[in-house]
């Protein structure tokens, strides 16, 4: 008999539904919206998918800050396409979460009331154009490392949404890398702008993988359910392994004097992450938490009359 995917079931008999759920998970099949699933599995997915959707939506803000000032028309077009993709990702993810029995309005309210989280990376600000490069290269790079395994997540609608999202994120990462490459091959001022931006974003990007494995409370169950496939620390290591050669190509220095390949451990040694900073930003005391929420509420409130008009018009047409 396979061990139960739902860890609360360890050591007791399964119902037929529970057995079927366990079997689907064990054989790496997808769970679909109409399949039975444990409540906790459903709740975990709703929390994770909606947080991801909210992150896409809030994540539009630090980049949209530079749409009006993009320094060439080509860059302006690429940046608009990227921010627009993020809105699209938010839309697919809200749709995936809706298959679990929650409405988009409920999720939006949870965000606006501060009850739902979004990735704390988007509470950092973008003072220079080079931050468009760092967000693409480091933040989207970390997102890809986190998200590619999610393409195999056991819940079908989520896994399928992630396949599409990951393809677009790859493009985003490439454009970020190109922005930095162009800057590093430019004037001294541009090179300084790029390096300072990498210094700003490197550590927050590493924090995106979440707390170290021994302090990550939800990970074990999520891995048993095959929502999550690799631990936070494993993913962080992989990501750093990807960055090191790319940083060499760019000619930027990763801001960690202790970063070194350890042959014996087959992993990178690195400095301790400043988890106090991470917890401060999560607690709402990051550089732009208040501004991000204010702007989202403002857009929502300013748009209320438009949404009401569309709903009223649709009702009249249906009547």
């Amino acid at each position: 008999m396979t061990s139960p995917a739902d860890l609360s079931l360890v050591g007791r008999e399964f119902s037929p539904e529970e057995a079927q759920f366990n079997d689907l998970i064990a054989e790496d099949s997808r769970i679909e919206p109409r399949d039975w699933m444990p409540d906790a599995y459903r709740k975990t997915l709703i929390r994770q998918i909606s947080q991801h959707a909210h992150s896409e939506i809030i994540g539009m803000q630090p980049e949209s800050n530079w749409i009006s000032r993009a320094p060439s028309l080509k860059r302006k077009a690429i940046l608009i396409a990227k921010v627009q993709d993020e809105a699209g990702h938010g839309l697919y993810l809200y749709s995936a979460a809706q298959t679990l029995g929650i409405s988009r309005e409920e999720m939006t309210d949870q965000l606006l009331e501060g009850k739902a989280k979004y990735s704390s990376i988007f509470n950092y600000t973008t003072p220079t154009w080079a931050d468009m490069g760092s967000i693409g290269w480091l933040v989207d790079g970390a997102a890809i490392a986190n998200q590619v395994p999610l393409c195999r997540a056991s819940y079908g609608p989520y896994g399928r949404a992630m396949v599409r999202i990951c393809k677009e994120e790859s493009f985003h990462q490439r454009q970020g890398f190109e922005i930095l490459l162009e800057l590093m091959q430019g004037t001294e001022e541009q090179r300084r702008m790029a390096q300072e931006s990498v210094n700003r974003w490197y550590w927050p990007a590493l924090m995106m993988f979440g707390p170290p494995d021994d302090e990550s409370p939800n990970s074990t169950q999520s891995m048993a359910w095959k929502i999550k496939r690799f631990s936070n620390d494993e993913l962080r290591q992989r990501f750093v392994g990807m960055l090191v050669p790319q940083a060499e190509v760019l000619g930027v220095t990763l801001p960690d004097p202790n970063l070194k390949w350890n042959e014996e451990k087959q992993a990178y040694d690195m400095s301790e992450i400043d988890w106090d900073e991470f917890h401060e930003v999560i607690a709402g005391r990051g550089p732009a938490n208040a501004e991000r929420m204010r702007r989202r509420r403002e857009a929502h409130e300013n748009g209320a009359w438009v949404r009401e008009a569309a709903a009223a018009y649709a009702r009249k047409q249906a009547a």
Binding site: I78, G141, A145, R152, V163, C166, E168, S170, R174
Partner: peptide, 20 residues
């Protein structure tokens, strides 16, 4: 689900949305 396994998590990326 073999298609998903083919995506390289190490960031091998392709530019298919906009030709740069």
């Amino acid at each position: 689900m073999s298609d998903e396994h083919d995506i390289d998590p190490h960031g091998e990326v392709s530019v298919d949305r906009i030709r740069l």
